[in-house]
Structures are given as C-alpha cells and as structure tokens.
Amino acid sequence: SPEEIKAKALDLLNKKLHRANKFGQDQADIDSLQRQINRVEKFGVDLNSKLAEELGLV
C-alpha cells in the first residue's frame, strides 16, 4: 500500500541521514537527504525514482 511504501522510504532515508551526520558527509548531501524526506512526507514515493529502485519496488 502507499502508506507502507512511504513508511519504508522514510525509514531508509532517515537511516541515510543519520549515517551522513555520524560520518560527517558534505552539508550538501545532508541537505539533499532532508529534501528527499520532506518530498516523501508530502507526496509519497514516485515509482519511477531511484528511491523506488532502492526499495525494490521497480
């Protein structure tokens, strides 16, 4: 269901964000992850996106 997909995506992105902060990645990478999280919260996951591929939806 779209809600489950959204939850999985947010979980994955939050893990990536945590790792980025923990290991001191570029601020641009961290900002990009934050924008992705905001986009998923607002609009859900686009099944044509790279994120959908990472989640194994495509």
Rank of each mutant, 00 (worst) to 15 (best):
S1K: 08
P2Y: 14
P2E: 11
E3N: 07
E4F: 11
E4V: 10
I5Q: 06
I5C: 09
I5R: 05
K6D: 02
K6R: 12
K6N: 05
A7G: 06
A7E: 08
A7C: 10
A9Q: 01
A9Y: 04
A9S: 02
L10N: 01
L10F: 01
D11F: 11
D11T: 07
D11Q: 13
L12M: 09
L12A: 05
L13C: 01
N14A: 12
N14G: 06
K15V: 06
K16H: 04
K16G: 02
K16T: 02
L17M: 06
L17R: 02
L17K: 03
H18K: 13
H18V: 13
R19K: 10
A20N: 02
A20V: 05
N21C: 15
N21V: 15
K22I: 12
F23P: 04
F23E: 14
F23M: 13
F23Q: 09
G24Q: 07
Q25V: 13
Q25C: 15
Q25P: 05
Q27P: 11
A28G: 10
A28T: 10
D29L: 15
I30Y: 04
I30E: 02
D31C: 10
D31V: 09
S32E: 15
S32G: 08
L33F: 03
L33W: 03
Q34T: 10
R35E: 14
Q36Y: 07
Q36E: 12
I37W: 03
I37T: 01
I37S: 01
I37N: 00
N38H: 10
N38D: 14
N38I: 13
N38E: 15
R39T: 12
R39M: 15
V40Y: 01
V40P: 00
V40T: 04
V40M: 03
E41T: 13
E41H: 11
E41P: 01
K42L: 13
K42P: 01
F43Y: 13
F43N: 05
F43A: 04
F43V: 05
G44Y: 02
G44C: 02
G44T: 00
V45W: 02
V45M: 05
V45A: 02
D46T: 07
D46L: 06
L47V: 08
L47P: 13
N48Q: 08
S49H: 03
K50D: 11
K50R: 08
L51T: 03
L51H: 02
L51V: 04
L51G: 01
A52Y: 08
A52F: 08
A52H: 03
E53D: 06
E53A: 13
E53L: 14
E53Y: 13
E54Q: 07
E54V: 07
L55F: 03
L55M: 08
G56H: 05
G56A: 05
G56V: 04
